[in-house]
Design a protein around this nucleic acid. Sequence first.
DNA 1: CGAATTTCGAAACGCGACGTATAGTATGAT
DNA 2: ATCATACTATACGTCGCGTTTCGAAATTCG
Lengths: 248, 248
Amino acid sequence: MVFLKVIPMLQSRTTQLASGSIVVPKDDQNRSIQSESRGRPRSEESEEAIVAATLQLLTEKPLRDISMEEIARKAGVGKATIYKWWPSKAYVALDAFLRTTNRMLPTPDTGSVRRDIRERIRAMMVFYMSPAGHIMGQFVAEAQSDKEFASLFRERFLKPRREATGIIFDRGVQRGEIDHNIDRELVLDLIHGSAIYRLMVGHAPLEEKLADEMVSIFFGGLNKRSLGTAETRRRTARKFRGTRRKTK
Amino acid sequence: MVFLKVIPMLQSRTTQLASGSIVVPKDDQNRSIQSESRGRPRSEESEEAIVAATLQLLTEKPLRDISMEEIARKAGVGKATIYKWWPSKAYVALDAFLRTTNRMLPTPDTGSVRRDIRERIRAMMVFYMSPAGHIMGQFVAEAQSDKEFASLFRERFLKPRREATGIIFDRGVQRGEIDHNIDRELVLDLIHGSAIYRLMVGHAPLEEKLADEMVSIFFGGLNKRSLGTAETRRRTARKFRGTRRKTK
DNA sequence: CGAATTTCGAAACGCGACGTATAGTATGAT
DNA sequence: ATCATACTATACGTCGCGTTTCGAAATTCG
């Protein structure tokens, strides 16, 4: 399971992701600035064991059903050690999660916004369909009862992903492919929100091909197709599987 | 606070919303069918007290921070009584919530889908912006760790609302205002998902006027405006508040 | 080297909520 | 009167929380 491989964060921001304040100041280049580190140093072994155990558990059950006690047991670590560095299990989980996912967010630039956006949405769908998608849902859930966590999750996870789409959008506006009056944030909400909605509510499966349909709506509108782009015509043929028109 | 007024459900489906199986069968017209009701009948007073207490608490704090013990105390009721009729606090909360919200879902029919959809979205926004919106977020959160609850919530709350929008959409297709190749479910996800996303993540405020922008995108597309509908032109003037174009 | 400092694992703590069980009472049908 | 069921109240054992205490380990400083 690729997802489980623990990939250390680039900046090696190891300490106190939790409270937002970094306790041991770090040089962006090397390790920790050896000024006020006196006693026994933090055990990297324990840290990694905690993170690994948490990631493992996150693939097995919802965050709510994971306990600090279980993480500590599985990691072979004292509970107090975890509480020393993270304020709650949600923070441990988010920290662990970010280390596996916070790498490169591609922003394709093919010359056509339409194609770029489609690729972006497709990548997003693939991500949401993976185990990581369900874990993300756990974090959104947690955010409903913990405002501090919500803010951290928003900044560290959602925003970067949202902006990756936003960059593509902006390029489209600059190139004149997207009308400059369009509400940027709303478009980002339409794209990401619909996927997250489906992911969290589960009324219909996420599918990669939704990217095509979405782009088609964004650039063709719901109206009767008069323009008839190549893509629109292609979609037409694919469409006869009888799931629609169940009303009246 | 209007929201707190307890409005009894039409069908008076009182018993075992919980397990999905209705224990005491009810005539759709009158009260309960007097066949296998032998002992002491269920106390409607207690039931109402439980529901009222739960609704009150739901306006004060997240579902996670509400305990069965607190509900029982506030309702002046034994804990066992609650567990007798509902399997967990989430079910109590949902049941209570549905009694206040499960009334009429208007599906405006003005002759123009565009206008109908805008009105529908507007109503949806108003609902999400009310206290009920945040409570709904609690249920979506709960659904992430309880699949049975998720299914009940989907059927009893989300689906009806979704379908209210769907009916409008279908009318638009029938009248030829919406292309029949458009993916109905995806459109519903775009509308509802984006709002729920904003509600639950809180990166931007929900606003009634988003309805206009949304409809404008759906029927105009993101493309450079060549058609220039009346509404599009109106939006243009409104647009100079400088919040956009923060990139480069 | 030795003292000071800090972290570590393990264990125990008090707290609060869970979901169940028991006891005694209340309310109806038969 | 008897039976069946629901009610309140309370107690129970279990679990997870977040904190505290302990002695041992690891590192810096004098």
